[in-house]
């Protein structure tokens, strides 16, 4: 594969140089950061240029490529440009990490909606990459988020998924929330969950927000907190509590 090196005052600038020079869309470039560059002290002493290495990927057969010529680049809005670069950068970073683990068979597909980049890993190492309770997948997601948001000024959210784990996990959390709220309603006592991360807690709060018979509260310190599901005293026990699942 051909590879070129580019410099710029920061990584984004270097990527922009590469786009202009090669006249290629960001999707066809595999970007590796050699040197992120720094402004130095007050932009005076010790400033270093950012350096990147770009490899050109084979043309995807079904995509018309000719339309993005160097002359058309200035007309593209900077934010839109940054996001396509963001997606590609996120994907190549994850691919690089996977290749070093090493899981050769893993393939990464990327898509984006607004500021959210979704990377989906497929291949036979999914079990290893998801880990117990998605631990490894969360770690990969966290690291890729860090790497991407270091390079791009625009805040980008990266979701790393495999084998539809995120959706399955969402369903199981919501399912658990429903079961615990039933328990709280029947026993008329608060029920508490295991310590959960902020993302999972949010899912439970949202799942039970519409339920008038219980309220949810986070308890504890730090990132891992428990949620206490508390049955509301009012109106419960009245004949009209048709919303309870027990009555259905």
């Amino acid at each position: 594969m051909e590879s070129y090196e580019f410099q710029g005052k920061n990584t984004q600038d270097a990527i922009e140089h590469a786009r202009r020079e090669l006249g290629l869309p960001a999707e066809r470039m595999e970007i590796e950061i050699i040197e992120p560059g720094s402004a130095g002290i007050f932009g005076l002493v010790g400033g270093r240029k950012a350096k990147i290495r770009v490899k050109i990927k084979q043309e995807p057969p079904d995509e018309p490529v000719g339309e993005e010529s160097p002359s058309s680049i200035p007309s593209v809005k900077p934010s839109a440009q940054e996001t396509t670069e963001g997606v590609e950068f996120a994907r190549s970073s994850l691919e690089k990490i996977l290749s070093l683990i090493p899981v050769e068979t893993a393939q990464v597909k990327s898509e984006q909606t607004d500021g959210t980049i979704r990377l989906t890993i497929s291949g036979d190492s999914s079990g290893l990459l998801i880990g117990r309770r998605g631990k490894t997948l969360d770690a990969l997601q966290f690291i890729v988020n860090r790497i991407v948001n270091k390079v791009f000024e625009e805040r980008l959210q990266v979701i790393v998924d495999s084998e539809n784990y995120r959706q399955r996990h969402h369903d199981s959390i919501v399912d658990m929330a429903m079961k615990l709220s039933d328990k709280a309603k029947i026993s008329k006592k608060p029920v508490s969950t295991a310590p959960l991360n902020p993302y999972d807690r949010r899912l439970i709060h949202i799942a039970l927000r519409e339920d008038g018979e219980v309220e949810t509260k986070s308890r504890g310190d730090g990132t891992m907190k428990k949620i206490v599901i508390i049955p509301r005293k009012s109106s419960s026990g009245q004949p009209g509590r048709a919303r309870s699942r027990e009555d259905i």
Binding site: I101, P102, L128, G131, K135, T136, D138, A139, F142, I143
Partner: peptide
Amino acid sequence: GRTARAMRTILSAASTK
């Protein structure tokens, strides 16, 4: 220690392999 923890998690997945 979140970043360090994430690196350790990825490392342990790689070591299992």
